[in-house]
């Protein structure tokens, strides 16, 4: 028979579920300065609030050696599920990023293991580079200067992480004045040393919530600033808007 202690424990667990205020899911909104609006606009071209799926190919080239990984990505807001599709030895490995918590699982590994955002994906790409950016929420931005980048006039911002959960401590971010797209990021260590620089291209097109076509990230090219030898490209193909349920990003359902 179920003991009184056991009953209490189960009741407490259920009460916690049904009585917890976070279950209501309500969020407040505050007005944001123009800089924040610019960052939010740039963020929108690198993710989607309701859900987007795409295929990603990551290629690393270092001293004439080339390695390639391929994924199917399901992304919603800043949550992400990446399922490895190639090479065969990595197939069906999975990366889950939910609320900035990251878990990795591969066939043969008994359970998902937690990993940090610094964990490298391939070459100079971190797992965090696959996810949509949330610079508007995670960084304080200061305008440094304006300059032309490949013929496009850009506002260059100095981004400093507001919280420890951000992937990088400090970023210089080039946002095109006309299109509002983030064209280049330079990432720094805490001591101020540049780690790598990433160039973004936006050849993909998706329909936004209003039925308007908007540019969407198609390629990120990451160059190592410390060693200077490696180049890593992340190609984003076949983006499709798709409403993704919460269960896609649930750890209990990751391994089956």
């Amino acid at each position: 028979m179920l003991s009184g202690t056991a009953s209490l424990r189960l009741c407490a667990a259920l009460l916690l579920l049904f009585g917890w205020p976070g279950m209501s899911g309500g969020t407040g909104t505050t007005s944001e300065p123009d800089t924040q609006a610019l960052l939010r606009r740039a963020d929108r071209a690198r993710g989607n609030e309701r859900g987007v799926t795409w295929n990603v190919t990551v290629t690393s080239r270092e001293r004439e050696k080339e390695e390639t990984l391929k994924f199917n990505i399901s992304s919603r807001g800043f949550d992400l599920l990446a399922v490895y599709t190639a090479p065969p030895r990595q197939r069906n490995a999975r990366l889950l990023m939910v609320n900035r918590n990251m878990w990795f699982h591969r066939p043969g590994l008994s359970k998902p293991v937690p990993i940090s955002q610094r964990q490298r994906l391939l070459g100079k790409a971190a797992y965090g580079d696959l996810a949509a950016t949330n610079y508007a929420e995670e960084y304080d931005a200061t305008l440094l200067f304006e300059e032309a980048l490949d013929g496009e006039w850009c506002l260059v911002f100095d981004l400093k992480a507001k919280t420890t959960r951000a992937t990088y401590d400090r970023i210089h971010y080039w946002i095109a004045r006309e299109s509002g797209l983030g064209l280049q990021s330079r990432f720094f260590t805490l001591s101020g040393k540049a780690i790598k620089v990433a160039r973004m291209e936006y050849e993909n097109r998706i329909l936004d919530e209003n039925g308007q076509t908007q540019p969407f990230i198609s390629r990120m090219t990451i160059r190592d600033e410390l060693m200077g030898h490696s180049v890593t490209t992340i190609e984003f193909d076949s983006p499709g808007l798709k409403e993704l349920p919460d269960s896609v990003f649930d750890l209990n359902l990751l391994t089956q």
């Binding site: 579920l17 976070g22 279950m23 949550d79 609320n99 349920p245 919460d246 269960s247 649930d250 359902l253």
Partner: peptide, 11 residues
């Protein structure tokens, strides 16, 4: 497994 929100799951 019930996932009513991304934040919560009950199994």
């Amino acid at each position: 497994v019930w996932v009513p929100r991304t934040m919560w799951a009950l199994s």
